[in-house]
Nucleic acid binder design. Structure first.
Lengths: 118, 118
DNA sequence: GCTATATTCAACCAAATGGTTGACCAAAGC
DNA sequence: GCTTTGGTCAACCATTTGGTTGAATATAGC
Protein backbone atom coordinates (compact mmCIF):
# COMPACT_ATOMS: atom_id res chain seq x y z
CA UNK A 1 0.00 0.00 0.00
CA UNK A 2 2.78 2.39 0.85
CA UNK A 3 5.45 3.21 -1.63
CA UNK A 4 8.74 1.47 -1.41
CA UNK A 5 11.68 3.45 -0.17
CA UNK A 6 13.02 3.79 -3.69
CA UNK A 7 10.64 2.39 -6.27
CA UNK A 8 12.87 1.16 -9.11
CA UNK A 9 12.09 2.57 -12.52
CA UNK A 10 10.33 0.78 -15.30
CA UNK A 11 13.65 1.02 -17.10
CA UNK A 12 15.37 -1.18 -14.55
CA UNK A 13 12.48 -3.60 -14.24
CA UNK A 14 11.91 -4.18 -17.94
CA UNK A 15 15.63 -4.37 -18.62
CA UNK A 16 15.98 -6.96 -15.88
CA UNK A 17 13.14 -8.98 -17.38
CA UNK A 18 14.58 -8.83 -20.88
CA UNK A 19 17.14 -11.54 -20.15
CA UNK A 20 16.05 -15.20 -20.32
CA UNK A 21 18.45 -16.29 -17.60
CA UNK A 22 17.03 -13.73 -15.23
CA UNK A 23 13.44 -14.65 -16.07
CA UNK A 24 14.31 -18.29 -15.42
CA UNK A 25 15.79 -17.33 -12.07
CA UNK A 26 12.61 -15.50 -11.15
CA UNK A 27 10.55 -18.54 -12.08
CA UNK A 28 12.75 -20.70 -9.90
CA UNK A 29 12.28 -18.31 -7.00
CA UNK A 30 8.55 -18.50 -7.49
CA UNK A 31 8.73 -21.98 -6.01
CA UNK A 32 10.97 -21.21 -3.11
CA UNK A 33 13.69 -18.99 -1.73
CA UNK A 34 17.14 -20.14 -2.78
CA UNK A 35 20.79 -19.67 -1.98
CA UNK A 36 22.95 -18.11 -4.69
CA UNK A 37 24.85 -21.35 -5.33
CA UNK A 38 21.61 -23.27 -5.76
CA UNK A 39 20.27 -20.64 -8.13
CA UNK A 40 23.41 -21.02 -10.23
CA UNK A 41 23.37 -24.80 -10.31
CA UNK A 42 21.08 -25.43 -13.33
CA UNK A 43 22.85 -22.87 -15.51
CA UNK A 44 25.90 -23.44 -17.62
CA UNK A 45 27.64 -20.26 -16.67
CA UNK A 46 29.95 -19.21 -13.90
CA UNK A 47 28.77 -18.44 -10.41
CA UNK A 48 30.07 -14.90 -10.86
CA UNK A 49 27.81 -14.42 -13.86
CA UNK A 50 24.79 -15.54 -11.87
CA UNK A 51 25.84 -13.27 -9.05
CA UNK A 52 25.76 -10.37 -11.49
CA UNK A 53 22.34 -11.35 -12.73
CA UNK A 54 21.11 -11.44 -9.16
CA UNK A 55 22.49 -7.97 -8.56
CA UNK A 56 20.57 -6.69 -11.56
CA UNK A 57 17.39 -8.36 -10.32
CA UNK A 58 17.94 -6.83 -6.92
CA UNK A 59 18.53 -3.32 -8.23
CA UNK A 60 15.31 -3.68 -10.17
CA UNK A 61 13.67 -4.59 -6.89
CA UNK A 62 12.54 -7.94 -8.25
CA UNK A 63 14.30 -9.95 -5.59
CA UNK A 64 15.71 -9.33 -2.14
CA UNK A 65 18.86 -10.92 -0.77
CA UNK A 66 19.37 -11.72 2.86
CA UNK A 67 22.62 -13.06 4.19
CA UNK A 68 22.29 -15.68 6.88
CA UNK A 69 25.59 -17.10 7.94
CA UNK A 70 27.72 -17.47 4.86
CA UNK A 71 24.70 -18.18 2.69
CA UNK A 72 22.87 -15.42 0.86
CA UNK A 73 19.24 -16.23 0.36
CA UNK A 74 17.35 -14.88 -2.63
CA UNK A 75 13.67 -14.20 -2.32
CA UNK A 76 11.18 -13.08 -4.91
CA UNK A 77 9.80 -9.56 -4.46
CA UNK A 78 6.54 -9.63 -6.37
CA UNK A 79 5.64 -6.06 -5.51
CA UNK A 80 8.27 -4.81 -7.89
CA UNK A 81 6.42 -6.35 -10.78
CA UNK A 82 3.33 -4.33 -10.04
CA UNK A 83 4.31 -1.00 -11.55
CA UNK A 84 5.28 -2.51 -14.87
CA UNK A 85 2.34 -4.87 -14.86
CA UNK A 86 -0.05 -1.98 -14.37
CA UNK A 87 1.71 -0.01 -17.05
CA UNK A 88 1.15 -2.89 -19.46
CA UNK A 89 -2.46 -3.33 -18.42
CA UNK A 90 -3.04 0.12 -19.78
CA UNK A 91 -2.38 -1.21 -23.25
CA UNK A 92 -4.41 -4.34 -22.84
CA UNK A 93 -7.43 -2.15 -22.28
CA UNK A 94 -6.66 -0.38 -25.49
CA UNK A 95 -9.26 -2.12 -27.52
CA UNK A 96 -11.99 0.41 -26.92
CA UNK A 97 -11.18 0.56 -23.28
CA UNK A 98 -13.25 -2.52 -22.60
CA UNK A 99 -14.30 -2.62 -19.02
CA UNK A 100 -15.36 -6.19 -19.52
CA UNK A 101 -11.79 -7.20 -19.93
CA UNK A 102 -11.01 -5.24 -16.85
CA UNK A 103 -13.75 -6.96 -14.91
CA UNK A 104 -12.61 -10.33 -16.07
CA UNK A 105 -9.17 -9.33 -15.00
CA UNK A 106 -10.36 -8.28 -11.59
CA UNK A 107 -12.40 -11.41 -11.06
CA UNK A 108 -9.46 -13.45 -12.04
CA UNK A 109 -7.31 -11.47 -9.69
CA UNK A 110 -9.67 -11.75 -6.78
CA UNK A 111 -10.29 -15.44 -7.28
CA UNK A 112 -6.68 -15.90 -6.40
CA UNK A 113 -5.95 -18.44 -9.08
CA UNK A 114 -2.29 -18.63 -10.00
CA UNK A 115 -1.50 -20.66 -13.06
CA UNK A 116 2.00 -20.25 -14.34
CA UNK A 117 2.53 -21.40 -17.88
CA UNK A 118 6.14 -21.85 -18.91
CA UNK B 1 -6.79 -17.23 -28.84
CA UNK B 2 -4.80 -18.54 -31.78
CA UNK B 3 -1.07 -18.03 -31.86
CA UNK B 4 0.40 -15.28 -33.96
CA UNK B 5 2.26 -16.21 -37.08
CA UNK B 6 5.56 -15.53 -35.36
CA UNK B 7 5.04 -14.59 -31.74
CA UNK B 8 8.01 -12.45 -30.79
CA UNK B 9 9.89 -13.65 -27.75
CA UNK B 10 9.62 -12.19 -24.30
CA UNK B 11 13.24 -11.19 -24.82
CA UNK B 12 12.35 -8.86 -27.65
CA UNK B 13 9.26 -7.49 -25.97
CA UNK B 14 10.80 -6.73 -22.60
CA UNK B 15 13.94 -5.33 -24.21
CA UNK B 16 11.80 -3.06 -26.34
CA UNK B 17 9.91 -1.87 -23.27
CA UNK B 18 13.08 -1.21 -21.31
CA UNK B 19 13.73 2.08 -23.10
CA UNK B 20 11.88 5.22 -21.96
CA UNK B 21 11.76 6.70 -25.44
CA UNK B 22 10.10 3.58 -26.78
CA UNK B 23 7.61 3.44 -23.92
CA UNK B 24 6.76 7.08 -24.58
CA UNK B 25 6.19 6.27 -28.24
CA UNK B 26 3.84 3.46 -27.31
CA UNK B 27 1.88 5.80 -25.04
CA UNK B 28 1.59 8.28 -27.88
CA UNK B 29 0.29 5.58 -30.17
CA UNK B 30 -2.28 4.67 -27.57
CA UNK B 31 -4.12 7.83 -28.55
CA UNK B 32 -3.87 7.48 -32.28
CA UNK B 33 -1.93 6.08 -35.19
CA UNK B 34 0.92 8.34 -36.25
CA UNK B 35 3.34 8.95 -39.08
CA UNK B 36 7.02 8.40 -38.31
CA UNK B 37 7.83 12.10 -38.56
CA UNK B 38 5.07 13.00 -36.15
CA UNK B 39 6.22 10.35 -33.73
CA UNK B 40 9.67 11.89 -33.81
CA UNK B 41 8.54 15.47 -33.36
CA UNK B 42 8.37 15.69 -29.53
CA UNK B 43 11.76 14.06 -29.05
CA UNK B 44 15.12 15.74 -29.05
CA UNK B 45 16.86 13.19 -31.15
CA UNK B 46 17.32 12.61 -34.85
CA UNK B 47 14.66 11.11 -37.05
CA UNK B 48 17.01 8.23 -37.77
CA UNK B 49 17.18 7.41 -34.08
CA UNK B 50 13.40 7.33 -33.83
CA UNK B 51 13.27 5.21 -36.94
CA UNK B 52 15.54 2.70 -35.21
CA UNK B 53 13.36 2.70 -32.12
CA UNK B 54 10.34 2.03 -34.28
CA UNK B 55 12.11 -0.88 -35.94
CA UNK B 56 12.81 -2.37 -32.53
CA UNK B 57 9.18 -1.91 -31.52
CA UNK B 58 8.08 -3.54 -34.72
CA UNK B 59 10.38 -6.53 -34.37
CA UNK B 60 8.98 -6.97 -30.89
CA UNK B 61 5.55 -6.98 -32.46
CA UNK B 62 4.44 -4.03 -30.37
CA UNK B 63 3.59 -1.88 -33.35
CA UNK B 64 2.84 -2.39 -37.02
CA UNK B 65 3.91 -0.06 -39.80
CA UNK B 66 1.95 0.49 -42.96
CA UNK B 67 3.19 2.63 -45.81
CA UNK B 68 0.54 4.72 -47.51
CA UNK B 69 1.95 7.01 -50.13
CA UNK B 70 5.22 8.29 -48.83
CA UNK B 71 3.98 8.28 -45.28
CA UNK B 72 4.57 5.31 -43.00
CA UNK B 73 1.88 4.96 -40.38
CA UNK B 74 2.63 3.42 -37.02
CA UNK B 75 -0.10 1.59 -35.19
CA UNK B 76 -0.10 0.07 -31.76
CA UNK B 77 -0.32 -3.72 -31.67
CA UNK B 78 -1.67 -4.39 -28.20
CA UNK B 79 -1.83 -8.13 -28.62
CA UNK B 80 1.94 -8.30 -28.46
CA UNK B 81 1.83 -7.05 -24.91
CA UNK B 82 -0.36 -9.93 -23.86
CA UNK B 83 2.26 -12.65 -23.64
CA UNK B 84 4.55 -10.67 -21.41
CA UNK B 85 1.65 -9.30 -19.41
CA UNK B 86 0.44 -12.82 -18.73
CA UNK B 87 3.93 -13.88 -17.80
CA UNK B 88 4.06 -11.10 -15.26
CA UNK B 89 0.59 -11.81 -13.95
CA UNK B 90 1.93 -15.13 -12.83
CA UNK B 91 4.08 -13.27 -10.35
CA UNK B 92 1.64 -10.52 -9.54
CA UNK B 93 -1.06 -12.88 -8.43
CA UNK B 94 0.99 -13.89 -5.64
CA UNK B 95 -0.27 -11.04 -3.59
CA UNK B 96 -3.60 -10.34 -5.19
CA UNK B 97 -2.77 -7.14 -6.98
CA UNK B 98 -3.66 -3.83 -5.45
CA UNK B 99 -6.85 -2.36 -6.79
CA UNK B 100 -5.81 1.08 -5.75
CA UNK B 101 -3.01 1.11 -8.27
CA UNK B 102 -5.42 -0.08 -10.89
CA UNK B 103 -7.93 2.60 -10.01
CA UNK B 104 -5.29 5.28 -10.13
CA UNK B 105 -4.35 3.98 -13.50
CA UNK B 106 -7.88 4.09 -14.80
CA UNK B 107 -8.44 7.60 -13.60
CA UNK B 108 -5.26 8.61 -15.30
CA UNK B 109 -6.19 6.89 -18.51
CA UNK B 110 -9.79 8.10 -18.60
CA UNK B 111 -8.86 11.67 -17.86
CA UNK B 112 -7.04 11.53 -21.16
CA UNK B 113 -3.96 13.22 -19.78
CA UNK B 114 -0.85 12.31 -21.64
CA UNK B 115 2.23 13.72 -20.05
CA UNK B 116 5.33 12.73 -21.83
CA UNK B 117 8.10 12.77 -19.32
CA UNK B 118 11.61 12.48 -20.78
C1' DG C 1 44.37 -22.44 13.33
C1' DC C 2 43.72 -24.65 8.93
C1' DT C 3 40.65 -25.84 5.28
C1' DA C 4 36.63 -26.04 2.70
C1' DT C 5 32.43 -23.55 1.25
C1' DA C 6 29.71 -19.43 -0.26
C1' DT C 7 29.93 -15.35 -2.57
C1' DT C 8 31.73 -11.21 -4.42
C1' DC C 9 35.33 -8.20 -6.63
C1' DA C 10 38.39 -6.65 -10.34
C1' DA C 11 40.15 -6.76 -14.66
C1' DC C 12 39.29 -7.95 -18.95
C1' DC C 13 36.73 -9.08 -23.45
C1' DA C 14 33.30 -9.42 -27.36
C1' DA C 15 29.03 -8.07 -28.75
C1' DA C 16 24.95 -5.30 -28.44
C1' DT C 17 22.75 -0.64 -27.69
C1' DG C 18 21.58 4.10 -28.52
C1' DG C 19 22.96 7.81 -30.58
C1' DT C 20 25.16 10.77 -34.46
C1' DT C 21 25.85 12.33 -39.40
C1' DG C 22 25.55 12.29 -44.43
C1' DA C 23 24.13 9.92 -48.41
C1' DC C 24 20.29 7.75 -50.48
C1' DC C 25 15.48 6.44 -52.36
C1' DA C 26 10.63 7.24 -53.18
C1' DA C 27 6.55 9.85 -53.48
C1' DA C 28 4.27 14.61 -53.81
C1' DG C 29 3.88 19.42 -55.28
C1' DC C 30 4.45 22.87 -58.43
C1' DG D 1 11.51 17.87 -64.59
C1' DC D 2 13.17 19.98 -60.35
C1' DT D 3 12.52 20.42 -55.45
C1' DT D 4 10.66 19.37 -51.21
C1' DT D 5 9.11 16.00 -47.94
C1' DG D 6 9.18 11.36 -45.53
C1' DG D 7 11.90 7.86 -44.24
C1' DT D 8 15.70 4.51 -44.28
C1' DC D 9 20.64 2.99 -44.80
C1' DA D 10 25.56 2.92 -43.75
C1' DA D 11 29.36 4.03 -41.27
C1' DC D 12 30.86 5.48 -37.21
C1' DC D 13 31.26 6.27 -31.97
C1' DA D 14 30.77 5.80 -26.81
C1' DT D 15 28.63 3.15 -23.43
C1' DT D 16 26.44 -0.83 -21.63
C1' DT D 17 25.83 -5.73 -21.34
C1' DG D 18 26.84 -10.44 -20.49
C1' DG D 19 30.23 -13.29 -20.02
C1' DT D 20 35.08 -14.99 -18.52
C1' DT D 21 38.96 -15.78 -15.07
C1' DG D 22 41.64 -15.35 -10.83
C1' DA D 23 42.12 -13.23 -6.49
C1' DA D 24 39.77 -11.77 -2.26
C1' DT D 25 36.52 -12.01 1.76
C1' DA D 26 33.74 -14.19 5.19
C1' DT D 27 31.78 -17.89 7.57
C1' DA D 28 31.60 -22.92 8.98
C1' DG D 29 33.61 -27.28 10.24
C1' DC D 30 37.05 -29.91 12.21
Amino acid sequence: MSHNTTAPSLDLIFAALADPTRRAILEMLLEDDMAVTDVAEPFEMSLAAISKHLTILMRAGLIAQEKRGRVKWCKLQPDAMRASSIWMQGFGQFEALDLEGLERFLEHELSGSAELDP
